[in-house]
Amino acid sequence: MDLTPRPSEPAKKPRKWLPIILLSLVGVGGVVIVTQFLRSAIDYYCNVDEIGIRSGCEEATRLRVQGTVEENSLQKIGGKTSFVMTFNNKSINVVYSGDPGGVFQECISVVAHGRMIDDTFESNRIEVKHSNEYAEKNADRIESSGSAACSQAQG
């Protein structure tokens, strides 16, 4: 049997570019996530009582501030929503340009994005921070207290 190599060159298999391209994109994506987002994610917000005290929570800068919407403080006038936000017995007045909508209500934790201007926090974005508690909606309890979150907070 003749098993000597054939004279003709075997056809070269084309290089598989898709995994290489995908791996490059993954590398770029990973670097972008770490450099652009992870740093700001670690210090996502300042608590109300840290404004002007903690490093990175300076009043002159744009802030993300976390606190609880105080009961009986919520007012909606002229397309603006105002409320008192509290954390660790420290409160600030917040004015939001619009209606936060969704599950925003009194006694719920929120993160407000904005700036401190003359002792009022002027916000243009509100994010509701949900707790890790889940309870059945009880119509009677809600009607008696006015806010589901206040009802849950009171137990």
Partner: peptide, 8 residues
């Protein structure tokens, strides 16, 4: 399952 008191 019921609705959640806050999330609905």
């Amino acid at each position: 399952t019921p609705q959640d008191v806050v999330q609905g």
